[in-house]
């Protein structure tokens, strides 16, 4: 079905099951092939295997077109892989579910609902009583820094504010894993930095498992425990790098930290090398 180049296995770390108790998501030899209009197969993902530990902040980093978002959608259950399987706590993922909460680059808020209505939507769907859902949602809105905007419609908010609402809306139904698809990609640099800081603050409180797709090296190193580097055509894992930096992380300290700088430089160099090697296949 899929033409997987033999070389791909060199780059893939074997799925280690040394700590089976702490692994929450397993991606097991996943490939994704799309049919393009010219009836040619486009291999978006080629034989991806990856384990994600519970409570880890894992970034998937790669150039556009490497299939990193597709990988996230497979974990979300929004897309079925052509071959292989993704598992959540040992259960095969067959569709979306409230245990995996997505946050999209496009925000995807419900424009006919107010900020409060958006955040309450998930809990209400889960059967939480209105008064309780509202109290929780108001607290979350405050946590993401939008107190006073509860009755605004998405149309009236800036991009950064919309993404804060989207994050609160997803956190509101208590997913075990956050799936963030280039969440800050549509924001300007300043807003992006602020949201990274705030996300880190929120995350360091309860340490939910996060799968975070990005093409920004700084962002990946700053936020993550682990960076999964992907290369494109076909999309495959190039390297998995543990980011051994102390937490809680503060941007002003981290930017001056030589270890942080080394991670960024090393990762950028590795991407450069693979670019020079030319497209695989």
């Amino acid at each position: 079905m899929t033409a997987v180049p033999a070389r791909s296995s060199e780059w893939v770390r074997p799925v280690t099951s040394q700590e089976p108790a702490s692994v929450i998501i397993e991606i097991d030899h996943v490939s994704q092939v799309f049919q393009t209009s010219a009836r040619k197969d486009h291999v978006a993902l080629s034989d991806i295997s990856l384990s994600i530990e519970e409570g880890a902040f894992v970034s998937i980093l790669g150039p556009s077109g490497c299939g990193k978002s597709t990988l996230l959608y497979i974990v979300g259950g929004f897309v079925s892989p052509t071959s292989g399987a993704a598992r959540m706590k040992g259960q095969a993922i067959t569709g979306p579910g409230p245990d995996r909460g997505p946050v999209f680059q496009e925000f995807a808020l419900f424009p006919w609902k107010t900020v409060l209505g958006n955040v309450m939507y998930g809990p209400r769907q889960q059967g939480v009583r209105a008064a309780e859902a509202e109290a929780q949602s108001r607290a979350l809105i405050e946590m993401v820094g939008l107190k006073g905007f509860e009755n605004f419609y998405p149309k009236e908010l800036s991009g950064g504010m919309k993404q804060r609402v989207a994050l609160a809306r997803t956190l509101a139904y208590h997913p075990e894993v956050l799936l963030m698809d280039e969440p800050f990609g549509a924001l300007d640099a300043h807003t992006r930095t602020r949201l990274q800081n705030d996300l880190l603050n929120i995350w360091e409180r309860d340490r939910k498992t996060v799968l975070f797709v990005t093409h920004s090296v700084d962002e990946a190193v700053f936020l993550s425990d682990k960076v999964v580097m992907m290369s494109k055509s076909p999309g495959r894992i190039r390297e998995v790098i543990d980011i051994d930096l102390p937490r809680p992380r503060r941007r002003n300290e981290l930017l001056l930290d030589p270890r942080y700088q080394k991670y960024v430089v090393d990762i950028e160099r590795m991407f450069d090398e693979s670019d020079e090697a030319g497209p695989a296949s």
Partner: peptide, 14 residues
């Protein structure tokens, strides 16, 4: 209708 909006709803259990 934006696909991602429907996905968001699906993740909530709709």
């Amino acid at each position: 209708v934006e696909e991602k909006m429907l996905w968001s709803g699906a993740a909530m259990g709709l």
